[in-house]
């Protein structure tokens, strides 16, 4: 299960809408081992494409160095699909390289890029080529010191 606070959830949706019809991408970092997505980091889609995303290689290095320095890891790796469902494509599965991360997909197809429209926000684990969808729980805020399972419900 992915537990994510509303502010971060909404920031991911807003980023996907802003970059539509290109795919948007980014990371939410959190303390290593916490499973808590805390620091929202929208990334530039260097591919600037409606059907592909890739972090710029220089940005990627900077991001990982920053996370290393902060004892963080990529808790969430998100991107949008802009004309297909919010489900990992074969490309997504082939290139997924963070078995510990929650892969979040947002779909802005069918008018979902419009402010206020319903939008698909789904989360997956992608490990050794195998996709497992998981529940997404949006909370108002993370309870200090608690494990993700003990966070306050919406």
């Amino acid at each position: 299960m992915l537990t994510i606070d509303r502010e971060t959830h909404d920031a991911i949706v807003a980023h996907a809408r802003r970059d539509h019809p290109d795919e948007a991408c980014g990371v939410v970092a959190g303390p290593i081992g916490s499973d808590r997505p805390e620091r929202f980091i929208p990334m530039l889609n260097a591919a600037m494409s409606p059907t592909f995303y890739e972090f710029d290689s220089g940005d990627l290095l900077k991001l990982y160095r920053e996370m290393d320095d902060n004892d963080e890891e990529p808790v969430v790796i998100y991107h949008s699909h802009t004309s297909t469902e919010a489900y990992p494509s074969r490309t997504d599965v082939a290139l997924a390289a963070e078995p510990g991360a929650h892969y979040v997909l947002v779909s802005t197809r069918d008018g979902a890029h419009e402010e206020g429209a319903p939008i698909d926000f789904r989360s997956f684990r992608i490990v050794d080529g195998e996709v497992t969808e998981e529940e997404v729980r949006v909370v108002e805020r993370y309870t200090t010191g608690s494990t993700p399972d003990e966070k306050a419900e919406v």
Partner: peptide, 29 residues
């Protein structure tokens, strides 16, 4: 990024640091 410095032929010397990072990439395509 070695793509800009000569690829696999990029020269190394003592004390250099090499970082390997898988791309973060994907998409509907």
């Amino acid at each position: 990024d070695i793509r800009f410095t000569g690829g696999l032929q990029t020269a190394l010397s003592d004390g250099d640091t090499v970082v390997i990072l898988p791309a973060v990439a994907g998409g509907a395509r």
